[in-house]
């Protein structure tokens, strides 16, 4: 199981700004280890963010997204105390969901 995400969501003037830092290797599948073998690709493919159960962002990642991916976005609405959940799935089927309260 992967480490938890760091999520910050802050509501201001009717707009909620969300910043997510995921913990993931994001192997491209093009790198070789010290003995010259290809390191198999291992990366997050899909991500979804939901505000009180309503989807506010869906993303698909390729291998070019950096290790420990960072993502920031904004959506209209959202108030202090509302729930914001982010979940991702990687190419090996691992998944993780974390939830925070908007502040």
């Amino acid at each position: 199981m992967a480490d938890p995400m760091k999520i910050r969501a802050s509501a201001k003037d009717g707009i909620t700004e969300v910043k997510v830092l995921m913990s993931h290797e994001m192997e491209t599948g093009q790198r070789k280890d010290s003995s010259g073998n290809l390191v198999p690709a291992h990366f997050i493919t899909e991500l979804s963010a939901e505000h009180n159960g309503k989807q506010v962002l869906a993303a698909q990642f390729g291998t070019a997204v950096s290790k420990n991916p960072y993502l920031a976005f904004k959506f209209k609405g959202g108030a202090k105390g509302d729930k914001l959940a982010v979940s991702w799935v990687d190419n090996k089927g691992d998944k993780r969901t974390d939830e925070v309260a908007i502040n």
């Binding site: 506010v56 962002l57 990642f61 390729g62 291998t63 070019a64 997204v65 960072y70």
Partner: peptide, 21 residues
Amino acid sequence: LAASFMLPAGTEASVQTRVKM
């Protein structure tokens, strides 16, 4: 292609991430 984002109505056209080049 590094990443693609679907924005439902109400989500602003403003995304930031970090990529490898």
